[in-house]
Write a protein that binds this DNA or RNA. Structure first.
Lengths: 125, 125
DNA sequence: GTGCCTGCAAACATTTTGCAAAAAC
DNA sequence: GTTTTTGCAAAATGTTTGCAGGCAC
């Protein structure tokens, strides 16, 4: 994990970072909190929010905006499929999109996010 | 404007709908509230939220997730550029994306949203 | 030892909801 | 007249923040 400036490497940061990198789900702050509490019983939700924000700013994780913010430890280029029924977030690695330009008339694109909405196979049964 | 089932067409709905269709900005619920208050001085913010939700469900407007929810009366296919500095939302009609498939392994895609992030030309000066 | 970081709780912002009155049909 | 919708206020939800003590360096 990167640390910038006078930033310190705490246990809370390490454990949240490791957790996000190890799971395939896209947890909310609340879910991260519940998960890391097993290893850090005294951690607070405020700290989780602060660390998630910090990791996001350092571009070590991505934020997924879907009502409540969810977080993705996988920062490789991929899209997300959000099921409108169960609200689960799925990764889409299929090459179904091709972004040709790195610049629009409005400004230079630093990053982009693609969200697909629909009903997942499980829910459509 | 479409009305479904036993839905009634009220002044509040008409004015909010007209407002969203007439502006080029992407207003938040609060902004919509301030704007329509000129014509409906007694409208409440709760009503604005209810009507925005209703219009969204009928697919007459789109919701843009960018921290606070913003709304777009233009439902034609286009992407959004969000300036990380001024937080303004811009429309991107340029054909810089081509979504080839209407189906992924996860489920059938009903709609998609593309968000570009960067610094707009005004802020980068 | 210095100063960044945490836990805690309170504050804040945004959105939803229950209810009686008002409006649409 | 009936039923939906509104305005209002309170509640719920999600997130941020101030501060004193704790921990990394």
């Amino acid at each position: 994990m990167i640390t910038k400036n006078k930033e310190r490497l705490t246990n809370q940061k390490k454990i949240i970072f490791d957790y996000l990198k190890s799971v395939k789900i896209h947890p909310s702050a609340e879910t991260v909190y519940s998960a890391v509490k097993k290893k850090l019983p005294r951690i607070s939700l405020g700290t989780v929010y602060r660390i998630l924000k910090n990791l996001k700013e350092k571009k070590e994780i991505n934020e997924i905006l879907s009502g409540v913010s969810c977080y993705d430890g996988d920062i490789s280029p991929h899209a997300h499929f959000i099921c409108e029924d169960c609200q689960k977030i799925f990764d889409v690695f299929e090459k179904c999109h091709f972004l040709k330009y790195r610049r629009t008339k409005i400004g230079k694109i630093k990053k982009y996010q693609i969200y697909f909405y629909g009903i997942c196979t499980k829910c459509s049964k």
